[in-house]
Computed example of a mutant assay.
Amino acid sequence: MTVVRDHRTALPSLASVYRTRSSVELKEFFRQRESVVFTLAFPVILLLVFGAILDYRITTASGVSVRFTQLFAAGIIAAGILGASLQNMAISIATERSDGTLKHLVGTPMPKHAYFVGKVVQVLVVTVAIVVVLLLVATVFYGVDLPSGSDWLTFLWVTALGSAACTLLGIAISSLAKNGRSASATVTPIALVLQFISGVFFQFSQVPEWLQTVAAIFPLKWMAQGLRSVFLPDELAALEPAGSWELGRVALVLGLWCAAGLLLCVSTFRWQDRAP
């Protein structure tokens, strides 16, 4: 009797592919000093500088007041999440598209969706890191009061929804850059403008009304508002344009941006640069 041996190599499991791709993404991120400094250190520097310079109290008509750093902590955490998701995804994917990394990955047996799983894991790890560092710095250097009780649940779902929406939007925006060299110049101004008009660096009520309307279109404004609700006393909701935290609307808008971001990713994502 002749025995026929099957010399085919068994393919790794999907879970193994996901773990490997996620590990690659994390190693590549933390090996790039510029990305680590800009994504992790820059928000911390902003918190330290603005917290030291803008040392004043915000008071409502009813007499309730808090230090500016209590409000700024919510805004800078929202900005940190934006940097770890939208900016990070848009710039890194545009760079990998330009240097041929994406084209190479398409030619391998790896499922295409494993690439995006790796990116999502990278965003999750970096987001957790930046949030933890910012909370630590805010409490140690400026005595910021952390959320308590059910506020932590609100903090978690606002962070999760905001990060998901910004990650998907970042993947979609990566297609705006003509090549990797222009990615940072394309994406960074968009992120900075959104931060200035979304109430990150000062009270949102101080933003001109027409810019408030523009900011309300995008997820950063709603993420910052949701985070303010867990860092500030309920009385300070009176300083919001609607006079309340509008957490239901925060969840709705961020959820809609997750859906819209997914549709944009599917319709605009490219594995190669556009032809010159």
Score class of each variant (00 low, 15 high):
P147V: 00
D151E: 13
W152N: 00
T154W: 09
T154P: 10
T154Y: 11
L156G: 09
L156E: 06
L156W: 11
V158D: 10
V158C: 08
T159L: 08
A160H: 04
L161E: 01
L161A: 05
L161K: 07
L161N: 05
G162C: 02
G162I: 01
S163I: 06
S163D: 14
S163W: 03
A164V: 05
A164E: 08
A164S: 12
A164W: 00
A165Y: 08
L168V: 02
G170E: 03
G170S: 10
A172N: 04
I173V: 15
S174M: 07
S174I: 03
S174C: 03
S174E: 10
S175I: 09
A177E: 04
A177D: 11
K178G: 12
R181T: 12
R181E: 14
R181Y: 02
A183P: 06
S184M: 10
S184I: 12
S184K: 14
A185C: 10
P189V: 00
P189W: 05
A191G: 12
A191T: 14
L192D: 05
V193K: 09
V193S: 04
V193M: 12
Q195W: 14
Q195C: 15
F196D: 04
I197A: 01
G199W: 01
V200A: 02
F201I: 00
F201E: 02
F201P: 08
Q203H: 13
S205N: 11
Q206E: 15
E209W: 14
E209T: 13
T213H: 15
A215G: 00
A216Y: 12
A216I: 03
L220W: 08
K221A: 13
M223F: 03
M223G: 09
A224Q: 10
Q225N: 11
Q225L: 13
G226R: 09
L227G: 02
L227Q: 10
L227D: 02
L227S: 08
V230G: 03
F231V: 06
F231N: 10
L232G: 01
E235G: 00
L236N: 05
L239N: 09
L239S: 02
E240V: 01
E240I: 02
P241C: 04
P241F: 00
A242N: 13
A242E: 15
A242Y: 05
W245L: 01
W245N: 00
E246S: 12
L247A: 01
V250M: 05
A251Q: 02
A251I: 06
A251M: 02
A251K: 10
A251H: 01
V253N: 05
V253K: 04
L254D: 02
L256S: 08
C258H: 01
A259L: 14
A260D: 01
A260V: 08
G261I: 05
G261S: 01
G261Y: 04
L262P: 10
L262N: 13
L263R: 09
L264V: 12
L264T: 12
C265H: 15
C265L: 15
T268G: 05
R270Y: 08
R270L: 08
W271M: 03
Q272G: 03
D273Q: 15
R274G: 13
R274W: 06
R274S: 11
A275I: 13
